[in-house]
Write a protein that binds this DNA or RNA. Structure first.
Length: 110
DNA sequence: ACTTTGACTATAA
DNA sequence: GTTATAGCCAAAG
């Protein structure tokens, strides 16, 4: 018997709940899951997100600095930026503009 | 079973 | 402001 969802599954759920044009941080997601400093696992879950269904909007998840840390994992280093800009998020120097404004708090929204 | 890594974060120098 | 080091948790080799 499995108790609750797996660590990764929780991450996927939260990531999918991120509204378009918004962004979130690994730490916030990790904190919502229960491990405030397991942000590394969140990123690892994203790496696996290529095999989960449906696809997870990992491009909406950035580091605490608002920096597109995983941009290189999207095939091209500019793909993540393009996706965010396509949703209305402005990117400058690989960082999210007004990150605090666009920040989506999973604990507050959920 | 042990070691290394990994899309992070926080604190210190 | 940038760089270094430590702490963190779980999965992959």
């Amino acid at each position: 018997m499995k108790n609750e969802l797996d660590f990764f599954e929780k991450v996927y759920e939260i990531c999918r709940e991120i509204p378009r044009g918004r962004v979130s941080s690994y730490g916030a997601i990790a904190k919502t899951i229960g491990s405030p400093m397991a942000s590394r696992m969140v990123g690892w879950a994203m790496n696996k997100s290529h095999s989960v269904s449906p696809n997870v909007p990992a491009h909406r998840v950035v580091n605490r600095n608002g920096l597109l840390s995983g941009k290189k994992f999207f095939g091209t280093d500019t793909m993540m930026q393009q996706l965010l800009e396509n949703e209305g998020v402005s990117i400058e120097n690989d960082k999210v503009v007004d990150f605090e404004k666009l920040f989506w708090n999973p604990m507050k929204e959920l």
